[in-house]
Design a protein around this nucleic acid. Structure first.
Lengths: 221, 221
DNA sequence: CTTTCGGCGATGCTGCCGCGATGCGCCGCA
DNA sequence: TGCGGCGCATCGCGGCAGCATCGCCGAAAG
């Protein structure tokens, strides 16, 4: 398993590389954005660990360029400033997961494994839960094979819930994911959005856990 | 949610405490490093806000001592000297996040929430005692495999008792854990809650120790 | 301009949770 | 041995938080 680590801070890069190598991966290191893009484009990696603050070309730009070309290799984004808006930006740019600094190496390993496994399981990373299927590349949603039109926000809500299928997601986490700023409970935006998705896809897709959050059941298979 | 604030500057500590309490947390304050270590070691906090410059025992030493003992509670480190080397030092010592002074209270709140959520999602193993199982991801409780619906408070009560299975938990400790506002015994909230959990899960799950507290038996295996 | 989207306030409903009242069992005490 | 105090169980009720739904409107996109 080859992993590309893109990180300009030498000390952090060395730490990550040591950890990954101890876990049995083969690690290539890169510090410059442009160079990183080239290597990710021409060589074959099981995954990329990508820092956002880079010389040459910004990490987000590298990621977007890969995605624009159709490169679908798993990318785990690191960022020093773990604000939610940045996280949304990273995910929107096509990151498979996001890890805010500081992090524990154990967590990096766990998430990296998850990302690789996910990409290995289905080459086309389509999410499915019950009768609902999501094709993230086309941004299309089908229920029992019948396509349904969702607005961008509705799509993001559903995708986030299905990405975390089997887990109760607090409404505050949803609110932060959809629009980073607003923390205080001053609107019912999430509830309205859930209602709209339910009307379009069916009421039984998203389950309400009063006082906890919302839940999309994971496939029993 | 109980938070331990370790900060020797009285004014700053008061500010932080006021902010956290306004956000709904229950705050314990500590100024001495040695004392802070003891409280963090013996009591149950959702997170710790830890200043580095302390009398008695240095903040980093406190943190390292917790980690050396295997205490995994989330720690948010504050420091007046926001140098990068110090930050690395704090992270290496096992801090979950680092916040250089001066900071905005909003940012403290945001990071604290992130730290708590991360620890809740990651470090929550599935609990089991007798026929009762708790799935923290789905916030769901099953008895002999049959799911039972619990309200948030009921869930927290049961989770706390099962986390401390095999130990008699005083009801005052339960009351403080559920919501520390009410100091002295002026209500029977805990007793009512225990009764409701019993009615939903079975009377023999939670045992009463008159005059001492409540007990969930640990698995004999 | 038309249309869609997303946010907001209003309203109603369900069920959570706190509280007082009452009852029961255990203990100490005269 | 009867009595009263204490700790806990149980019940019912009311306030209100949490959520669903509706309708409106400004903004942005086509």
């Amino acid at each position: 398993m080859r992993i590309l680590v893109v990180e300009d801070d030498v000390k952090i890069a060395a730490d990550i590389a040591a950890t990954l190598e101890a876990a049995g991966y083969v690690v290539d290191r890169e510090t410059d954005g442009e160079e990183a893009w080239f290597r990710g484009d021409t060589e074959d990696y099981a995954a990329v660990v990508l820092d956002l603050g880079l010389p040459g070309m910004d990490g987000l730009a590298v990621l977007k360029r890969w995605r624009a070309e159709g490169r679908r290799l798993p990318v785990l984004v690191l960022s020093a400033r773990g604000t939610w808006s940045e996280r949304v930006e990273g995910i929107d740019a096509g990151a498979d997961d996001y890890l805010p600094k500081p992090f524990h190496m154990d967590e990096l390993l766990a998430r990296l494994r998850a990302v690789i496994r996910r990409s290995a399981g289905h080459a086309a990373p389509a999410l499915a839960a019950g009768p609902v299927r999501i094709d993230p590349r086309q941004m299309r949603v089908t229920v029992d094979g019948v396509p349904r039109a969702l607005s961008p926000q509705e799509y993001r809500l559903l995708a986030y819930l299905m990405l975390h299928a089997g887990r109760v997601v607090p409404q505050q986490e949803l609110a932060e994911h959809l629009q980073g700023a607003h923390d205080e409970r001053e609107s019912n935006a999430v509830e309205v959005l859930v209602g709209r998705v339910r009307r379009k896809l069916g009421a039984d897709i998203i389950e309400t856990r009063r006082g906890f959050g919302y839940l999309v059941a994971a496939d029993a298979s």
